[in-house]
Design a protein around this nucleic acid. Structure first.
Length: 821
DNA sequence: TCCTCCCGCCAAGCA
DNA sequence: TGCTTGGCGGGAGGA
């Protein structure tokens, strides 16, 4: 009852306020005379009914008519009243969509030029806007707040804003991206996704508890408004409210897009992150719903600005609303350049400290005092989260698993991997596989065409050897990780089509599941279970004939890799220096956790590839990564090769670092990496250095129990040049095409957030063998292959695992997906 | 049924 | 003290 009355009063107020503006208006002041609080007179009764039926429409219609003539107003009023009890009145109401904030924002934006003349400032009077757009003031605030977050408007005074248009947008986005990177939002996203999958079946409470721990305590919560020089932020209130401001939320929401790869953020994740940085007690459902509501508000405005677009991420658990960034690409290089132009201290040193951050912030926002700098606490929270994990596993059984200390940094990589799946549509994968042959030709590592949407300016000039070496130009591109101390290096086979995006070394990454393994091809028959993104326009549904393109669309330009990877390495190093031992535990935990749901891939040891030789080291030193101190823990169970920290110290890890920025490595970069071909292999102790593929195979096969330990199998040329053709992959059940025999090749795939690393193993080694300990576990991660749309014929093992009759191991993506059959 | 998000209450804070 | 600003959540339209 309250609302209608109030609305009626408002309508009357509007009515009377408009009178002076409308000359012929002669509306009697009767509404004023009738106290709105008295609903029991016939007039007020009627009025209340009208208001109750649709106060908005009533006032809106009245206002509209008032602008024409007073008589029309009265007629309209009468008309409305007459229709009040009828269905026609309801029909006359604008639909909900017509009143949407997005539409309103469109109208609002239409009032002002995108790029107003600097000499001529546009001022926004809220009163005028509310009148002209026939909306409540409250709605305008929603719009203005979001626009403020992008510095498209700024508050001048009460009721008064200045319209800046999009002049500041690039600068703002770069600043936001920078802040987002510094605060490791991508890692938060990964963390959330990881926990999401880990606790898929957990009770909400438990999940919330986990979430809470992952974000640390509320005391660390600190949300600030990112400002730009010259764009002063004058919040109406400077109290704590501003930290919950829609502005801040909007900025953070945008940050998530800018640091994500692909630039798709689900509302759920965004809300959790926003809550995570708020208070722990906010993790209840109502708060979550509130955040979601606000995010919808923000998203509507951002959509009107064409910065984002609504999409849907389809997962096993259903269709999730998400948004995809469609705004201008914000390149970190440019950003860094700009930052450096502002201040030379902006380039974070090897160990990025808070001090340097603040310096950078000062440089970025010189017009404001320190209190205005953005000082997000995400990093601290992340650390806390991991420490929580560590604590949890302190009592857990020790595991021989070793993963790199960098896992500490890239712990959430795993979820990130999942996070990336949405970006890879089934069609994309299929298309990718179908064009595998073509890519083999086109996507030679040195070929720029191999890079989806290669932007010249984005081609990373990876001057440093990354320890990632192509051994061939086949579609399966081996990458070597030198292993100095043990004398064993590791090979990773990269699919060239994705090699450009590979990046990432991370134990978490190594321990991640190997989805989509189809023996004969790149095509994944798992693709059906891959998350897919379907925009409403279906624009992300790309045909199979343009896999590269589609991938490119979803993946971040590789450009970011160089600086980002360096930065990440530095951060990882800094973080790992002090708590290396502790983190091992944590890493183990994370590994174990990953094990639960995600089978891992394998690093293939190159037993004859010498390590630590001067040539290699010099190469690494050139890369500036020799000092990298990471401890890798891997589990034989998960097929991860133990990789002590000392070993990794001299490994050119950067290329394998999974960073929150999703650093990518271009084929060119990989091709340019000389480690394998020159430093590593050539510098090996013997001139007859075995083919790394052989070592890789041996290790792999031993590891999974297909051959006994100590048994060495000769290298198979297939491994060096595994022709993965669309034919073979599509006809895995028929005679194998090219060199891949039917069902005789195992392809292991690492999925990083943005790429896959494939390991192909040739037939001779797939011989029946007595299951050994590791095998039993390992096979749990395998699933038989099948056509892209068909379920493979499985032969269940006694332990419940399955193996294809064709000898092909099929690696599922997720636990849930594995459960089928 | 769930997703979206309109709507407006009401409190904080400004003028 | 009135007005502006905006956090917040109920609940309804829509898919």
């Amino acid at each position: 009852l309250k609302t209608p009355l109030k609305q009626a009063a408002t309508s009357q107020l509007v009515l009377t306020e408009r009178q002076p503006d409308c000359q012929p208006l002669t509306t009697p002041p009767k509404p004023k005379e009738t106290p709105p609080a008295d609903p029991w007179t016939p007039t007020s009764n009627l009025k209340m009914l009208i208001s109750a039926a649709s106060p908005e429409i009533r006032s809106r219609e009245q206002r509209r008519q008032l602008s024409d003539s007073s008589s029309e107003v009265l007629q309209t009023k009468h008309c409305l009243q007459e229709h009040l009890l009828g269905d026609e009145y309801e029909k006359s109401q604008p639909s909900r969509k017509e009143k949407s904030l997005g539409l309103l924002c469109h109208k609002f934006l239409a009032r002002y030029p995108d790029y107003p003349s600097p000499s001529q400032k546009s001022y926004i009077c809220l009163d005028e806007v509310t009148e002209e757009l026939h909306v409540e003031r409250r709605r305008i605030y929603d719009i203005v707040n979001v626009l403020e977050s992008l510095h498209m408007v700024s508050r001048l005074a009460r009721n008064r804003y200045v319209w800046h248009g999009r002049h500041n947008l690039p600068q703002t986005l770069q600043a936001l991206r920078k802040v987002g990177e510094e605060n490791k939002y991508i890692q938060q996203i990964q963390m959330i996704k990881k926990r999401e999958y880990e606790h898929e079946f957990d009770a909400d409470g438990e999940r919330n508890e986990e979430m809470a721990s992952s974000f640390g305590s509320s005391e660390q919560s600190e949300m600030s408004f990112v400002e730009l020089p010259g764009v002063e932020f004058r919040a109406a209130s400077v109290n704590g409210r501003k930290y919950k401001s829609l502005r801040v939320m909007s900025q953070k929401f945008v940050m998530l897009f800018l640091v994500s790869t692909p630039q798709i953020v689900s509302l759920e994740v965004a809300a959790k992150i926003l809550i995570g940085e708020d208070q722990l007690e906010d993790l209840d459902k109502s708060k979550f719903k509130t955040k979601i509501r606000r995010l919808y508000d923000i998203a509507n405005v951002l959509s009107s600005l064409k910065l984002i677009k609504k999409v849907h991420v389809t997962e096993e658990r259903g269709r999730k609303p998400a948004f995809k960034w469609t705004g201008p690409e914000v390149l970190p290089n440019t950003q860094d350049t700009k930052l450096e132009a502002t201040s030379t201290t902006c380039s974070p040193p090897i160990s990025e400290s808070i001090t340097s951050k603040e310096q950078c912030s000062k440089a970025l926002f010189p017009s404001k005092g320190k209190q205005n700098f953005t000082r997000h606490s995400s990093l601290i929270k992340l650390v806390k989260s991991i420490e929580n994990d560590r604590r949890k596993i302190q009592s857990a059984p020790t595991s021989p698993v070793k993963i790199s200390a960098s896992t500490y940094q890239s712990l959430p990589v795993f979820p990130n991997t999942i996070a990336q799946f949405p970006a890879i549509t089934k069609h994309q994968l299929e298309g990718q596989s179908k064009t595998a042959e073509e890519m083999q030709m086109k996507c030679a590592l040195s070929s720029p065409e191999a890079v989806p949407k290669p932007e010249p300016s984005q081609q990373p000039a990876l001057s440093q050897p990354l320890g990632v070496c192509p051994t061939s130009h086949s579609s399966v591109s081996p990458i070597i990780l030198p292993h100095p101390q043990s004398g064993v290096s590791y090979a990773i086979y990269l699919h060239p089509s994705q090699a450009h995006t590979v990046t990432t070394y991370s134990p978490g990454f190594m321990l991640q599941p190997l989805p989509c393994a189809n023996v004969t091809g790149i095509k994944s028959n798992n693709s059906k279970v891959l998350n897919k993104i379907t925009t409403e326009e279906g624009d992300t549904q790309r045909g199979p004939d343009e896999p590269t393109k589609s991938l490119a669309a979803e993946e971040r330009p590789e450009t970011k890799s160089e600086t980002s990877s360096q930065r990440c390495l530095k951060r990882s190093q800094a973080l790992s220096e002090n708590n290396l031992i502790k983190r091992r535990k944590s890493d183990e935990e994370s590994l174990d956790t990953s094990l639960t749901f995600f089978p891992s891939g394998y690093l293939i040891p190159l037993t004859h590839c010498t390590h630590g030789n001067k040539a290699e080291c010099s190469t690494k030193e050139k890369a500036g990564v020799c000092s990298l101190q990471h401890t890798a823990y891997s589990s034989p169970i998960t097929g991860v090769i133990p990789m002590p920290a000392s070993e990794l110290k001299t490994v050119n890890i950067p290329a394998f670092h999974i960073t929150p920025l999703n650093i990518m490595l271009s084929p060119n970069s990989i091709a340019a990496a000389p480690v394998l071909s020159n430093s590593c292999l050539n510098s090996s102790s013997t001139s007859s250095a075995p083919n790394p593929s052989s070592s890789a195979l041996n290790f792999m096969l031993q590891h999974i129990g297909l051959i006994p330990a100590g048994v060495q199998v000769p290298a198979n040329p297939v491994l060096q040049h595994v022709p993965v053709s669309s034919q073979s992959e599509n006809t895995s059940h028929s005679s194998g095409s090219t060199n891949v025999q039917e069902g005789k090749v195992i392809k292991f795939t690492f999925y990083s957030p943005i790429n896959e690393i494939n390991f192909l193993f040739s037939p001779p080694f797939l011989q029946p063998k007595e299951p050994q300990e590791p095998q039993a576990v390992t096979e749990n991660f395998f699933r038989t292959p099948g056509g892209p749309n068909t379920e493979p014929a499985l032969s269940a093992n006694s332990d419940g695992t399955q193996r294809t009759s064709q000898g092909t191991l099929y690696i599922p993506q997720r636990k849930l997906e594995v459960s089928e059959d």
